Amino acid sequence: MLTVWGRPNSINVQIVMWTAAELELETDRKDVGGAFGGLDTPDYRAMNPNGRIPTVQDGDLTIWESNACARYLAARYGAGSLWPEDPAERATADMWMDWKKTSLMGPMTTVFWGLVRTPEADRDDAAITAAADSARTLYAMLDEWLAGKDYLLGDRLTIGDIPAGAMCYRFMNLVQDRPSMPNLEAWYERLSSRPAYRDHVMLPIT
């Protein structure tokens, strides 16, 4: 059984839990981080010296960083399905996974913290507006990529869909006045039909 350390409303934990659920892996998730605390304890820092979530234990192996955890699970338990065996396909999946971290995470974090975690009277509306504009532009790029595809790599879900797909739930719920993105919207509907996505990503945004 996998042990996953991290609270369920963390998008980085959601990436790992969604991946594990798609692979039908039994998991024991333990609440740490945020209101639960526990990240600065000696025991947790011994597992994850970075002191963040998620952390995954699989037997004697302990790993952290959400994309690394998801890649490991897909490679070990989902070769040929979530984990593309072709190096070119895997590079494409990696590209979109890293795009979520390096490009999408910044503006969407500003939107999330501004609209969800900050009292209305204290919000920086200009920063939120600019970040939402950036998120629209980035997801419009993904909309173009998805033309003619069911998923990012073609006709099946892979690890490449999971980070941007997890963030898409927040984008659809927090960013208003979106331009028409028919390919993105169809992709989001496909994700929303998957029980693992509904169970681990489509949660209250808090």
Rank of each mutant, 00 (worst) to 15 (best):
Y77F: 14
T41R: 06
R90S: 05
A75F: 03
D155L: 00
A126S: 10
G114W: 14
N50H: 06
Y44Q: 05
L82M: 02
S103P: 01
M47K: 15
V56F: 03
R71D: 02
P107G: 11
A46G: 06
G114H: 13
R156G: 04
S134T: 11
D43M: 02
A132W: 10
P42S: 01
A130K: 15
P107F: 14
R90A: 10
I128A: 12
S81H: 12
E85Y: 02
A135P: 11
A140E: 08
A132V: 08
T41M: 06
A93M: 08
A88H: 09
W83I: 00
P84C: 01
T118I: 11
M97N: 13
A126I: 02
W64L: 01
A46W: 09
F112L: 15
L115Q: 15
W99P: 09
L73R: 14
L61N: 05
P49W: 04
P84K: 07
D124Y: 09
A91G: 11
A126P: 04
A74C: 13
G80L: 03
A130Y: 03
A147M: 07
K149S: 01
D122W: 10
A147W: 02
W113T: 08
P49N: 00
Y139E: 05
D98V: 09
D40L: 09
D150Q: 12
L115P: 15
P87T: 01
R76Q: 15
L138V: 00
I53C: 06
N48C: 03
T41A: 04
M95W: 12
W99C: 00
D86M: 05
M141C: 05
A121D: 13
A127T: 10
V111E: 15
A75C: 04
G114D: 11
D98M: 11
G59E: 04
P87C: 02
M95E: 09
R45Y: 01
R52F: 04
R123M: 12
A88V: 10
M97A: 13
L61R: 10
T118S: 14
K149T: 00
A140Y: 06
P54V: 00
A135W: 09
Y44V: 01
A79T: 01
